[in-house]
Design a protein around this nucleic acid. Structure first.
Lengths: 371, 371
DNA sequence: GCAAGTGATTTAATCGTTTAGAAAAAAATA
DNA sequence: TATTTTTTTCTAAACGATTAAATCACTTGC
């Protein structure tokens, strides 16, 4: 039976219950000394240090970060607050955050905003009396004692209030709010939109239709502003009959395009405020017997994975989501360390990716006749 | 100047420094009493309870979860370990996890596996002497003292060892390992693959090609097993010349299809082991001047978002990723509570979504001539 | 009216670390 | 060698909660 002795016996199983005290006893030193060698925070005699290291090895000791956090009042944790983890920009941004954070000694506590309910259960006594959502967020944040917060999302929700109240480093990733009280890192929504329509101008397009996102949302407004600026800078007028309000979804892109196709004079190009609506528009165009880009050019926004699997491949705008995440994390860490005081508003450049859905206009108005 | 007094004065700013002790003093009771009302864990006289509640309100007190965790030796945190947060199945699974977890009083500590480096920095003294990756994971997990762990990923990495050593509830989501030592929740990889080829059989296909994923990976092997089983159950032989090894990427789907198209007799249908390769195959077919599904049927796997934006829309297999996440979280929570002892292997059913890339075979062999 | 019983409240120990400040040891100086 | 200085090590008090066990304040029964 001896032969069957488990081979795994040699593996030190971190029993999770061994504390610094036991290591100290094992090494014949005080807990302070053990702490000093673990954290490299004071000189300790070489032989003693080795004894401690051996004791740690032998006992399978793992520092209890919870206890440490309590003592030093610092969790080395960044709270990442997202509206919906699945939603389009979020995973890519988290990826960037995580990539930056991995290089530090911090960790990420992920908070889907729906998770709030959980706290109502636990602390219902308190909660009954409080302004629910605000206080719940604050409980989440202060309760877990994260060192900083990164908020990733659309910022549509009415959480500006509580976010303002937070006396911890806070950085908004992806979107901006109108009151710029905190760090934010975004992309150049307005500029890149302008660039997209300039691209269409360059190809000779003048009758350019726009399919917007939900009209009241901030990205939709900013993109519209960029579009309008490009038009006015070029001295061309944007025919308001050609702007249709979508809602970011495929179906709205389709139906808006149908509407546009029923006008007396067709647009020669369509700028959809995201790729989903762009696909919808392309399908509508195709179903109407017209071709992209020969009859109508289409340009999207987001450079979603599928953009390249469409026929033809979609010309669109790529936002550096990973870069946004990285910079947001960078900002958060810097603010924690105090090197980066005050608020800042960082903007990461986007780029237009010219693929196959935009082409030079052929039949349309003569260019020379225009301003 | 009085008129300019900030309006925000009335808002209680959780100063994050007020402790239970101060609340107690404010309410004129002991800290124990405060704790009892917060946690509803013992009777306290109504007037006193109210005094405590008021004191909490007034002071803007928020319980320090770190301190609580240390005391009760329970963090109410589930560690979610992922290989790559951006990678295809991960966000959807996390979504499911988070959706289930939100209904409890737990939180999620997200760990991208790349984050390990951070721990090397902090604890390099210890780390020098240890088997790096294993111990780093263990430090991460035991250090943060999570109550349970959910591992989301391909399980290709050599981490089975350390995962086996963990004496905490562990559930593997999405993939399974060969040694079934822990809870796992997966999908019916083999069965659904068999069903997919039966679907092709039903449509009259007999010459069915397969584009595999990376051949050594477990999902690729399981899917292959299902395919082979369907063939043998139907008494049809799978022409091994028709199975090509891809690597899950678009390009490999394309090139495998090119190879298949160069054979003397063409397949009438192709089963690609994921949607990415399916698109690649479709593009190859299209570029060869053939049509999907009239000439060759195509079936994918994953039901990626873009499947429905292709022309024609892709017939594929949908895995209930959210369901996997939810069940994984459920299992983890149950195991923490002790209601769900021992290991289990749960399997969530997938479904075949018939869209437009599969059609009845027309030209091919007479059905009646076959077994 | 008093002992016993019941229920509310408080006291104080505890969780596992870190870290001033005290003490001890070692090294430098006189 | 005796003293001072420097360096290493240890003692013990935090950090902010929870929770046995002790205490206190009432009832109740006899």
């Amino acid at each position: 039976m001896i032969a069957m002795k488990k081979i795994t016996d040699k593996i030190v199983k971190p029993s999770s219950s061994v504390t610094i005290k036991e290591v100290a006893k094992l090494a014949g030193v005080s807990t302070a000394t053990v702490s000093y060698v673990i954290n490299n925070t004071k000189n300790v005699a070489p032989e003693k240090r080795q004894r401690v290291l051996d004791a740690i090895e032998q006992s399978g000791y793992t520092p209890n970060l919870v206890a440490k956090s309590l003592r030093v009042k610092k969790t080395n944790t960044i709270g990442v607050l997202v509206e919906d983890i699945m939603g389009y920009p979020v995973p890519a941004i988290i990826n960037g955050i995580s990539e930056r954070v991995e290089k530090s000694d911090y960790r990420i506590l992920l908070n889907d905003l729906r998770m709030l309910e959980s706290l109502f259960n636990q602390y219902d006594q308190i909660m009954q009396q409080k302004n629910k959502i605000n206080e719940a967020i604050s409980l989440l944040l202060f309760g877990a004692r994260v060192d900083a917060i990164i908020y990733v999302g659309m910022f549509d929700r009415n959480i500006t209030g509580i976010l303002n109240e937070i006396n911890k480093p806070l950085v908004i990733a992806y979107s901006t709010s109108d009151d710029k009280n905190f760090h934010s890192v975004t992309y150049d929504n307005e500029n890149i939109s302008a660039e997209a329509v300039r691209h269409l101008f360059d190809l000779g397009h003048r009758r350019i239709a726009v399919i917007t996102g939900l009209a009241h949302t901030s990205p939709a407004r900013m993109r519209m502003r960029g579009i309008q600026r490009a038009f006015s800078e070029a001295g061309i007028v944007l025919d308001s009959a050609l702007v249709k309000n979508g809602d970011w979804e495929y179906a709205s892109g389709y139906s808006c395009m149908i509407e546009l196709l029923s006008e007396d004079t067709l647009p020669t190009a369509v700028f959809a405020m995201n790729d989903l609506m762009a696909v919808g528009a392309m399908d509508a165009i195709g179903n109407a017997g017209l071709r992209v880009p020969e009859d109508i050019s289409v340009i999207g926004f987001d450079n979603r994975e599928f953009a390249v699997y469409l026929h033809p491949k979609l010309t669109t705008i790529e936002i550096d989501l990973k870069g946004i995440g990285q910079l947001a994390a960078e900002t958060a860490l810097n603010t924690i360390l105090g090197v980066d005081k005050g608020e800042s508003s960082l903007i990461i450049p986007s780029r237009l990716i010219q693929r196959k859905t935009t082409a030079r206009v052929v039949t349309a108005v003569k260019e020379s006749a225009l301003p």
